[in-house]
């Protein structure tokens, strides 16, 4: 590991100033991703601004009926928070579908937003990777890329955002509050992560030195009709091949409002607002769901056939959307691959 200095900031503005005062600085939250990356020698900050003492761990109700999640609240505290469980069960479910209890106990909400991709080549210094070293090429285009994306990809990068939590935050239309050298601002969740384009080294739209301070959830939490469907290679501690977070408002069998997002398929949590609109005002039916799924993947591009290559995600993604919409509509887990309950049938 490179040598680095470390400052323990006690307030957000102090942290922002500390960061700005050092070259090659990085913010350290729970450290569950950054420290790994430093050990692998993929991230080489010479200074860490530790956020552990910042008073940003609260989860508080907002006047508009929403909920503010402190950037330094842990993923575990967020998932098990009574208000989150009651009003935003979709968020709880996605957080608990990710990582392990140990990781969730350490990982912070702000850190979750900023975790790097799990693309094999990003993690392997012996492999060319435009995200890690711009201009070196993308090893995933032709190599094994089971973990990579099929939507919104570019020829320079097909990596995916690995977060589960962010898939729910996209569907919930959260707002990210940030503080930087030029003051505070908010970023709509859809605008927070970006597509790779020609600059896959940039995961998000934060400006240099900007710090996530909170995530605001709007009042609508879809607590009556929601689901998170995560398909992966084993039942826990595996990143999504495809995941779908759905929140619906229903009136009888009619869908009044629909929000959904996909994980494991793109450089960001993937939302398709046209597809959402196709659902609204319509009667829930398998046919409708299939049309919506087809729309979402209409422009998808797979990168090779077979198990190690990701073209299968297009068909899998469609089926996952159909199933997730069905589950959210009916709120009956006829089959729930996330939590396989029938241990001793």
């Amino acid at each position: 590991m490179n040598s680095f200095t470390l400052t323990q900031a006690t307030a957000a503005d102090e942290a922002v100033r500390d960061y700005a005062g050092h070259e090659h600085a990085a913010y350290l939250g729970g450290g569950t991703n950054l420290v790994d990356l430093m050990k692998y020698n993929l991230e080489r900050p010479s200074h860490l601004t530790s956020l552990g003492l910042l008073p940003l761990t609260d989860i508080t109700s907002l006047p508009d009926g929403g909920l503010r999640l402190g950037a330094l609240a842990t993923n575990a505290d967020t998932a098990w928070h009574p208000e989150v469980e009651k009003r935003y069960p979709l968020l709880s479910q996605t957080i608990l579908a990710g990582a392990t209890p140990q990781l969730r106990n350490a990982a912070t909400n702000g850190g979750n937003l900023n975790q790097r991709t799990r693309c094999y080549y990003f993690y392997d210094l012996a492999a060319p990777c435009n995200k890690r070293e711009p201009g070196t090429g993308c090893s995933a285009l032709t190599g094994p890329n089971r973990v990579c994306g099929v939507l919104g990809t570019s020829e320079s990068c097909i990596a995916t955002n690995p977060s589960d939590m962010c898939v729910a935050l996209a569907a919930l239309e959260a707002t990210v509050r940030v503080q930087g050298p030029n003051g505070e601002r908010t970023i709509k969740f859809d605008d927070y992560h970006r597509l790779p384009g020609d600059h896959p080294e940039k995961d998000n739209t934060l400006e240099p030195g900007e710090l996530v301070t909170a995530i605001d959830l709007p009042a609508e939490g879809y607590a009556d009709h929601f689901t998170y469907l995560k398909l992966r290679d084993r039942s826990s501690y595996a990143f999504a091949l495809v995941s779908v977070a759905v929140g619906l408002k229903m009136n009888g069998n009619t869908i009044e409002k629909a929000r959904f997002a996909l994980g494991g398929v793109a450089h960001k949590p993937w939302r398709d607002q046209e597809a959402e609109k196709m659902l609204e005002g319509q009667t829930a039916s398998p046919d409708l769901f299939r049309k919506v799924a087809a729309k979402v993947f209409a422009e998808a591009k797979g990168y090779g056939e077979g198990s190690l290559h990701n073209s299968f995600k297009i068909e899998l993604g469609k089926r996952a959307i159909v199933r997730a919409l069905k589950q959210a509509t009916e709120m009956k887990y006829e089959v729930n691959p996330n939590v396989f309950l029938n241990s001793n049938p």
């Binding site: 094999y120 012996a126 492999a127 090893s139 190599g143 094994p144 290679d233 084993r234 595996a238 190690l308």
Partner: peptide, 23 residues
Amino acid sequence: YLNNDLGRYVNHNYAEYHIPVNA
């Protein structure tokens, strides 16, 4: 996962080389 372009196994960690978990 063997990448024949690189001549190298690429999922060389516990997160991506999958063995069963308790669940």
